[in-house]
Design a protein around this nucleic acid. Structure first.
Lengths: 292, 292
DNA sequence: TCCATCTATAAAATTCCGGCATGGATTGGA
DNA sequence: TCCAATCCATGCCGGAATTTTATAGATGGA
């Protein structure tokens, strides 16, 4: 097994073509062709389906990619840790954030890492909870901020955000604590389905045995707030989303309260790597500062 | 980073000398010398302390070994899985067993694996719970049978063994359920301290606020039983240890019952690897058959 | 002191790999 | 229908990297 071969395999797999990978790797295309061929011989499987459009992974290729790519990252990082043993931590650290977290605190977090550990190159991935958990599990990324932890991975509870019913000033439904059951049929503007928040809201609605009248969906909270301000309907959003908006909106908590948990999950490598360990407290701090 | 370099590094590290490794790898010694040198340059650390006795790992070397060896195993196995995609599962699977489990079921288990999956090469490691958990954690082995699971790893409860107070026929303490508090000062022969069982017994004694009068310790249950038969003292052993000995000994359970749990812990790679997945049910069956 | 046992170094031989030129296949457009 | 463009594959060559062979250097024990 040659490591370089595996790396070129991964590169070709992600670019989807020999010629494209050849540009990025600054290696002539025939060389890559031969590398892939040799890897295929070694493995005894066809890894790519060749076509006019380039190279597409076969099932065997996908399996190899899934099994190998995380391990290579960890290997690199392990060597990097040894290299910078008595210096400041160095190397690449990959962190996954759910979109809302990325928007609220991504930049601050990245700056904090750059300031505290100039030797660490941060790789920020954005994705939904389920994908992020999968990546952490496979070692593609070292840690992630997600909305509900996995049972199989150790998760650390960081923040519990309360979700509020938001509407224009003076709306009758916002008088006192909100009850889910009384929202039956009310016009709503809600986060769209790919948002983890929506899942929580829908589940709560189902539990209360009601259905919303969802007039609009949007993934950006900003947009939702504008729709609410226009009087289109009510929304359900985390408290942080309407911070600094006092006066333009009214909001009230639910009874019983509705909330979403933000958890930090670490990959196996995260408990070993020095660079990763250096980043963890910064991520924790940034999260608490932005959302706590 | 070259993979071959890392592998020779590991080999040299475990043999402790260039010349010994050169024999095993069928590679001339100067080649190894150069490989190590280049790895050291690459990492920027001295990995071995050279002496007339051979090569001893420096702290940096130990770190590298710890970080890298598990990953390489998993990498090999990943490639092997792709290679044998549509065939029967193949490759090496490393399993750790606590000594007592190894003695009771090790052979049966190994035979079952060989019978069901001829392509799988089984690597059986024996060790104490704490070591095994560490190895699983670092990916050195794929799974282990241990006495208490780790919090950080998903563990599956397999068997709960009841521990019995064992003594010669007619001993007064064996009349009815035993109570820990009444064993104060009684002469005992117990498993020695490296045995996981002893830890449980000691903790129970401490909880009851008593101390045994430990006349003898032994790690082999067989030996302990002989001492008990000689009338040297009482012992505390799992029920399976005295199976088929009815007539020679009397035994009674504790109130409240004392037991030890046998758990199966899987490494991260175990949830991906095909070969590993094929072995898991066999290990489970063998355990239940021998101890359940 | 001499031998045995390590690792390190130097030079020759070999193997491996990347680059260039080119071929073959497929598709889109004139 | 034919040409051009865009893929990947193959053959050959030169250079880099690695292994082998041979040997030196160091060190502790008979």
């Amino acid at each position: 097994m040659d490591l370089k071969r595996l790396q070129t395999f991964l590169r070709v797999a992600e670019t989807g073509s020999l010629s494209a990978a050849s540009d990025r790797l600054r290696i002539a295309q025939p060389a890559l062709s031969r590398q892939i061929r040799m890897l295929e011989d070694e493995v005894g499987q066809t890894l790519f389906a060749r076509s006019r459009e380039g190279m597409a992974l076969t099932p065997a290729g996908e399996l190899l990619q899934a099994r190998v790519s995380g391990l290579l990252r960890q290997l690199e990082q392990g060597v990097e840790d040894v290299r910078s043993m008595e210096d400041a931590p160095q190397g690449k650290v990959a962190v996954g954030l759910v979109p809302s977290a990325a928007a609220v605190m991504g930049a601050d977090f990245a700056m904090a890492v750059g300031r505290a550990h100039p030797g660490i190159r941060l790789n920020l991935q954005q994705g939904y909870t389920s994908h992020l958990l999968d990546w952490v599990h496979r070692g593609e990324i070292d840690m992630a901020l997600v909305y509900r932890g996995a049972e199989q991975l150790p998760a650390e509870q960081l923040v519990r955000e309360e979700l509020l019913l938001v509407g224009p000033q003076g709306h009758p439904a916002l008088d006192g604590p909100a009850e889910m059951a009384r929202l039956e049929g009310l016009p709503m503007v809600l986060p769209s389905a790919e948002n983890g928040l929506r899942l929580i809201v829908d589940m709560a609605a189902e539990r209360a045995g009601i259905r919303f009248d969802v007039l609009a969906e949007a993934s950006a909270f900003q947009l939702l707030l504008e729709l609410v301000a226009e009087g289109m309907g009510l929304s359900i959003l985390p408290r942080t989303a309407i911070q600094g908006m006092a006066g333009r909106f009214a909001a009230t908590g639910f009874a019983p309260p509705l909330h979403r948990d933000i958890q930090l999950v670490l990959s196996r490598s995260a408990r070993q790597g020095r660079a990763v360990q250096a980043v963890v407290p910064l991520l924790r701090d940034a999260t608490l500062k932005a959302l706590g």
